[in-house]
Computed example of a mutant assay.
Amino acid sequence: MSIAPPSNGELAPIATEARRFLEGVWPEWHRLRGRPLPDPLSIGTCQTSSLFLATVLREHGFNANVAQGNDPSKYEGYFHDGRWYGHAWVTCEGWIVDISADQFGCPPISIKPLDDPSYRTGHDTAYESAKRQRQTLANAAFESWRSTRSALS
């Protein structure tokens, strides 16, 4: 017996909950990087946010991974309004789940089929220290999210 993949409707509430939580975390991430608060707050957070979301989805029993494309000159990342942008998102059992698409003027949460041509995977070109910092921030956010949920139970 095979298990059906999740539907967009199953992923949307989890993505929405994760996004709402991160909206309270993003200001601190910007402060830690010495940046002023952007509008929208999701600007510059896609990789760390995607690491967080993938962990949340895995905790809900889904197979989720971070995907990204950071070199627009190689036609990778996210395509919007006629150009490519470096970006990160989550792939989850046949779906793209993007909780920071509003940085491009799109809806804040986007769930699309895995073969959507607006997303093209490439490579993470960041230094190892930046990758470690993103993972540390995502892990801390996840622990805070988990403890918040436990306190509400």
Rank of each mutant, 00 (worst) to 15 (best):
M1P: 13
M1L: 13
S2Q: 10
I3V: 15
P5S: 13
P5E: 09
G9D: 15
E10L: 14
I14L: 15
T16P: 03
A18C: 06
R19D: 07
R20M: 11
F21N: 03
L22R: 01
E23N: 08
R31Q: 15
L32Y: 07
R33Y: 08
G34L: 08
D39Q: 14
P40F: 00
I43M: 13
I43T: 11
G44Q: 06
G44S: 06
T45G: 00
F52I: 03
A54P: 00
A54M: 04
T55A: 14
V56K: 01
R58T: 10
F62R: 08
A64P: 01
N65P: 05
V66R: 02
Q68C: 11
G69L: 00
G69W: 03
N70G: 12
N70M: 14
P72A: 04
S73E: 15
G77S: 04
H80S: 12
H80I: 11
G82D: 02
R83N: 09
W84L: 05
A88Y: 02
W95R: 06
W95Y: 07
I96S: 01
I96F: 03
D98E: 05
I99S: 03
A101G: 07
G105Y: 09
P107Y: 08
P117T: 08
H123S: 15
A130Q: 14
A130E: 15
Q133P: 02
Q133A: 14
R134F: 05
N139C: 08
A140V: 10
A141R: 01
F142N: 06
W145C: 03
W145D: 04
S147E: 15
S147F: 08
S147H: 13
S150I: 13
